[in-house]
Design a protein around this nucleic acid. Structure first.
Lengths: 334, 334
DNA sequence: TTGAAAGCGCTAACAG
DNA sequence: CTGTTAGCGCTTTCAA
């Protein structure tokens, strides 16, 4: 009759006090038994645990958190604006989340997922730590969350000045590896397509430039803000109109690469005979693209796990430093 | 010196008691003031809220939850196994999550993200409600979570018998809409490519079949378990080898559709002159595919928001029923 | 309109 | 090995 149907769901189950009474011991003994404390007699412990199972006992997390003054929660702040910019539009962020979640739950923590807007919610402030995902995390956002004064780890590229713990894949290496690939193929008029105002892309570009410089080669930068097929096509068409020669393209994303390839073929040039092309991210579709796309692959799952381990370390008061993960060049037909 | 560096982060801020003392009122008045209760004098309220801001007061969620016997948390259980099967590998689940998160945080709830493995964690049992994502959610998983006896909503297709609240897009309509499109084009030898053992796909197939039946047309089912380009190509090649005629293909996913198109072109037939092809999901890449892919689009964002609204309703003890969202056929060049 | 008392369920500290 | 005491920070009675 009461309109509040909530009671039905909440609570209802036995508490530690109930179990204590059933077992003829004190609450604290139950607490210890369920926590596998060595302080409790093995038999007693077994008995209590059995009782707990039998009666469907469920630990009241809020009570424990209150007592322990910890939420056992890490807030993951994702940038979800569905822009045509790259952001979180590809499947990878989800894999990243998978890695984070796996590692965190294994450690007894929960993952509180929020967007940047929702991040002001009370629950986020109550978290024991913070993980920031999404490019652009570096600029304004980081500072905002800094003020929460929580252990924080961000995904991306170390942007010079900042003092945060940053985990990301080794974008500089990614660029270098492509450069070396082009050098090995004897290319000497390489082009870079992408938007270097993203710190990660900037790193890729720099790695690319530096590794090419060894052979005295200087790549041409085709700045493109959108990470789409169309944008890639446009870049190549623009090169053609400006009568710029090129024999290799490093696109900082697979969609750009696909567009670049298509435009190149349209112009009557062959890939890879006339022009080599390498993309980034190694998205599943790349392998079945025609021709099968060469690409730089990063290990998102591992990245997520690493992020998680770092926050956990910080939460425990241990030190943690920025780290970048290796990447690998997958050579297919382009 | 103590190894436990945690103290640094936890607590530290003022409590309601502190504010009470500062304001010269009682704890409960502070509580009411911060909760915008009408029971408190507007001036007092203003004064207390100012004080709270000034001193950086933060509500202790655990304490409130303990008292209220609610966690203000909804657990979202995602299937994240990175299989080549569709599952959560595409970008869409993230958009779904975005919708859920947006709606839930707006209502003052937080999103607890878990994988199926981690779902046994205590924090999940403490949630006020459950949202299940990922195909296959229907079979075994649903029952497992049923036992938690929490308000629960699942994403997918109503599979006949089950009594749960299911939100999903109208897959049957999706199939019908494609069928009508084919009929309008005068096609009469349509093929369906996909795996109907997924409830959602099964619905698409049925909608397709039923709408075609109106014209006495019976589609051919090419069962394919993988949702990949290769799988799509394989299906068409297999049709060709078996010398089966066809003039229209409905692939239950865009990758399959792309594969089907490529194979069709390989066989020297034209798309769409000889064969019409429609995919599903309308992934971003589809528009820049050659030829631009026609596809059925579902509104994931809205789906997520609807899921959220349903659990919230259930949590409040209000009734909620299954619902499916409209889909739209995006006709491009295939 | 405000307050006092009580207790949500749990665990750290100290005693036995 | 087990228990007693106390209290985490908040809000719902009930009383003023």
């Amino acid at each position: 009759m009461s309109k509040k149907g909530t009671r039905r769901h909440a609570s209802g189950g036995p508490t530690m006090a109930d179990l204590a009474q059933l077992a003829g011991v004190s609450k604290i003994t139950v607490s210890r038994a369920l926590g596998d404390s060595p302080l409790v007699n093995p038999e007693t412990r077994e008995r209590i645990q059995a009782l707990a199972r039998e009666h469907g006992y469920k630990l009241n997390i809020s009570a424990r958190n209150l007592r322990l003054r910890r939420s056992h929660t890490v807030a993951v702040i994702v940038e979800m604006k569905p822009s045509t910019d790259r952001t979180m539009f590809d499947p990878y962020p989800l894999v990243l989340l998978g890695g984070i979640s796996q590692e965190l739950t294994a450690a007894g923590y929960s993952v509180l997922l929020t967007t940047r807007q929702g991040a002001s919610a009370a629950a986020v402030q109550a978290a024991d730590g913070l993980i920031l995902l999404g490019q652009g995390a570096h600029q304004d956002a980081v500072r905002r969350f800094d003020k929460l004064n929580l252990p924080m780890v961000v995904w991306g590229a170390q942007s010079g000045s900042d003092t945060h713990v940053v985990v990301g894949s080794d974008n500089r290496l990614g660029g270098a590896v492509v450069a070396r690939h082009f050098i090995a193929l004897g290319r000497h008029r390489p082009v870079f397509i992408g938007n270097p105002s993203h710190p990660e892309i900037f790193e890729r570009l720099n790695g690319f430039i530096d590794a090419l410089a060894v052979r005295g080669i200087k790549p041409l930068l085709m700045r493109r803000d959108e990470f789409t097929v169309d944008s890639g096509m446009d870049a190549v068409h623009s090169l053609h109109q400006r009568k710029v020669g090129f024999d290799a393209i490093f696109a900082c994303n697979d969609l750009l690469a696909m567009g670049a390839i298509r435009a190149t073929l349209d112009l009557g040039r062959s890939v890879p005979a006339d022009v080599s092309v390498v993309g980034y991210d190694d998205m599943p579709l790349g392998a079945s693209f025609l021709p099968p796309l060469s690409s730089v692959r990063q290990d998102w799952q591992e990245g997520g796990m690493l992020l998680a381990r770092k926050v956990l370390a910080l939460i425990e008061g241990e030190p943690a430093s920025s780290e970048s993960l290796p990447v690998s060049l997958i050579v297919r037909s382009t």
